[in-house]
Computed example of a mutant assay.
Amino acid sequence: MRRIAILAEGAFEWHHGKTATGVIKYGQDPIVAVIDRANVGKDVAQALNAPFGQGIPVVRDIYEALKLEPDTLLIGVAPTGGDLDPIWRSQILAAIEAGLNIVSGLHFFLADDAELSEAANKYGVTIWDVRRVPDKKRVAQLVPHRTGSKTILMVGSDCATGKMSTALELDIEARRRNLDSAFVATGQTGIMISGNGLPVDHIICDFIAGMVEEMVLDFADKHEWVFVEGQGALNHPGYAPVTLGLIHGSNPDAMIFSHIAGLTTVDGYENAPLPSLKRLIQMNEEAISWIRPEPPSKAVGIALITHRLSEEEALAEIKRVEEETGLPTNDPMRFGVANLMDALERHFAE
Rank of each mutant, 00 (worst) to 15 (best):
G326S: 07
I92S: 01
Y26H: 14
T329C: 14
P237E: 10
L179D: 02
G301P: 02
H307T: 10
P273E: 08
C205H: 14
T264S: 15
F335Q: 09
T80K: 14
I35E: 04
I256W: 09
I302R: 07
M215N: 10
A11I: 00
A45K: 11
D112S: 04
V200D: 04
S194Q: 13
H259A: 04
L280E: 13
K278M: 08
L84S: 05
D36T: 03
H259F: 09
A209I: 08
G41F: 11
P70M: 12
T19N: 12
E285R: 06
G27W: 13
H223C: 05
I172H: 07
I208W: 09
E322W: 11
I291S: 10
P144D: 11
E313Y: 07
A167F: 04
R132T: 09
I291E: 13
R131C: 01
L168N: 00
T264M: 14
D201W: 07
D71W: 02
F257I: 08
K18N: 12
P252R: 09
E313P: 01
R308D: 14
V34Y: 09
I102N: 03
A140C: 06
I247R: 04
I127H: 03
I288M: 12
A114C: 01
I305K: 13
A261N: 05
I191T: 01
E294I: 11
G195F: 09
F183T: 00
T186L: 10
D253C: 01
D113V: 00
N251G: 06
A299H: 03
A38E: 15
V228I: 12
M283V: 10
A119E: 08
A38I: 06
L344E: 04
V216Y: 07
L74F: 13
Q282A: 15
I281C: 01
I281Y: 02
K25H: 13
G197K: 11
L315Y: 04
E169F: 03
D36K: 04
V300L: 12
V337Q: 11
E214K: 07
P57Q: 10
A209N: 07
P252S: 08
M1G: 12
L68S: 05
L344N: 01
E313N: 07
W128I: 12
V59L: 13
L153M: 12
L340A: 06
G262N: 08
Q28F: 07
